[in-house]
Design a protein around this nucleic acid. Structure first.
Length: 475
RNA sequence: GGUGUCGUAGCCAAGUGGUAAGGCAGAGCUCUGCAAAAGCUCCAUCGCCGGUUCAAAUCCGGCCGACACCUCCA
């Protein structure tokens, strides 16, 4: 099946061509722990990756780590200040500063069951590629040096603004331009390479010591990793301008041709209906939320409950709704695992329903990653599966079991929830308690029976009384 | 000021020309000693006004409201 994805550049849904899809996703700046809003963007990349694979594509996926910029440099300088003797040079301090956040980032991705991408390039490891890009731009005449810094001349790019649809001449440019310290030919030009003294974090270049500007790394790394253009570039909506606009300008001027076929952007996550960002300070890191007792699988489900192109508001209420959804899914999964299997003939209606559900699920996902619709398919299927399981007593034909199992796993290929739920065997101790409770119940000692039920609940198990007996289920 | 997105039931959220998916919450019911789980039933005419059309939540125009980008930001 072909996947359709909304292209920010053309403002239309477009078909992603088979068989190989090369994707580059803007990753984190490793100067802090990433917040739940950041993770919306990474889970978006993850869902895209998983959906393409499920639909039969091959995927080569890169996500960068920005480890040199104003903020990381500031962090490195503060490390040096605290302990001047510790570092041989500033680059070492920079590495020391970014390392724990880099590790935390990978840990967090794992926590949220985000697919491990094929490449995770770091900016500091691709400085030569960036310098090469700068030289190319100078050579073709779209960049110029000014006091050791190199700028991109926007006036050389006729279609500058095509991604964000921004007409720079019409924009309110106001006071900021007058106070800007840069000595550029045109105030709108952006910096490719920043002059930096020997006392700062710097690399040698034809233009003296300096460091890369903000936009340079993605273009250079895409070129280096993929040896050409890519099919899909993802990121948050705030990157459309100027970051991605500048990437387009650089890459097209330096490498020729079109650089990215399809731009896909995910909307922001709001907290209390306000944009969440590091600078506003109203952000929760994943670690904060886990410390509050939120579960990773619930956060993941929550992030899938709204379409990626829509703003989503983070709230306790929304999280509760997600929690109920996850519980229902996992409850069915556990129920299925309890069933004994036999070799009777399979149910053709179940087979038809299961195949239909899988196809609908994929169809919804293939249509611009419509996760809310896909979740609706999951819920409808869960109802059918529950009805089926409740109708067959306590044992089931192996083929029927396989059919349900296969379908739930199929959904989970994209949802990625089951792997997040810790698997532990229900210990004999609790099984014994359950037996005791049922014995008390049979003896009409309901006080004792209910006391045991409360005890089990305390231990994290709920009792399910069914026609065919009582079972424990993990909460 | 420029650009763009959005406004669907108590809440979350799809649908984008043919008479409103799904979920959460709530109510009733089946089952149950009770409860839980599961299942069944009930629960909206789509911000406002006007237009186009046989037909509009869905297209067009106006208005109101919310948010975002234009500056570091997923």
């Amino acid at each position: 099946m072909f996947v359709q994805l909304y292209n920010t550049l053309t403002r239309k849904k477009e078909q992603v061509e088979k068989p190989l899809v090369r994707i580059y996703s803007c990753g984190p700046t490793v100067y802090n722990y990433a917040h739940i809003g950041n993770f919306r963007s990474y889970i978006f990349a993850d869902i895209l990756n998983r959906t393409l694979k499920l639909a039969g594509y091959s995927v080569e996926h890169a996500m960068n780590l920005t480890d040199v910029d104003d903020k990381t440099i500031k962090g490195a300088l503060s490390l040096v200040q605290e302990n001047p003797q510790k570092f041989a040079n500033l680059k070492e301090a920079l590495l020391a500063y970014t390392k724990p956040y880099t590790e935390a980032f990978f840990d967090d991705l794992k926590t949220l069951n985000v697919t491990r991408f094929d490449h995770h390039p770091r900016a500091t490891e691709h400085i030569p590629a960036m310098l090469d890009l700068v030289e190319r731009l100078i050579k073709v005449g779209v960049a110029y040096e000014q006091d050791g810094s190199v700028y991109y001349r926007i006036s050389e790019k006729k279609d500058y603004g095509k991604l964000s649809k921004i007409d720079l001449d019409k924009n309110k440019t106001g006071t900021r331009y007058n106070t800007d310290e840069y000595d550029k030919d045109d105030i709108r030009d952006f910096v490719l390479w920043k002059a930096e003294s020997k006392d700062g974090v710097h690399w040698h270049s034809n233009h003296g010591d300096g460091r890369p500007g903000w936009h340079l790394e993605c273009s250079a790394m895409i070129h280096e990793i993929f040896k050409g253009g890519i099919d899909i570039h993802t990121g948050g909506v705030d990157l459309i301008f100027p970051h991605h606009e500048n990437e387009i300008a650089q890459s097209e001027a330096a490498y020729g041709g079109s650089f990215v076929k399809l731009w896909a952007h995910c909307e922001h996550l709001l907290v209390d209906n306000r944009k969440m960002s590091k600078s506003l300070g109203n952000f929760y890191t994943l670690r904060d939320l886990l410390a509050q007792g939120k579960k990773a699988e619930v956060l993941r489900y929550f992030l899938l409950s709204a379409h990626y192109s829509q703003k989503v508001n983070f709230s306790e209420d929304a999280l509760h709704q997600a929690e109920m959804g996850v519980e229902k899914f996992y409850s069915l999964w556990q129920k299925l695992e309890r069933f004994k299997r036999h070799s009777a003939e399979a149910s053709s209606t179940l087979k038809t329903a299961s195949e239909g559900a899988r196809l609908s699920f994929l169809t919804q996902m293939a249509d611009d990653l419509n996760t809310p619709r896909a979740l609706a398919v999951v819920h409808e299927y869960m109802r059918e599966a529950n009805i089926f399981l409740d109708s067959v007593g306590m044992s089931i034909a192996q083929d029927d079991w396989d059919e349900i199992h296969k379908t739930l796993l199929y959904f989970d290929t994209v949802l990625g929830l089951i792997a997040l739920i810790p698997k532990t065997e229900i210990s004999a101790e609790y099984i014994k308690l359950l037996d005791e409770r049922n014995a008390a119940r049979a003896a009409k000692d309901f006080a004792r029976a209910d006391a045991i039920r409360d005890e089990l609940l305390e231990a994290g198990y709920k009792i399910l009384d069914t026609k065919t007996g009582s079972h424990l289920e993990k909460l």
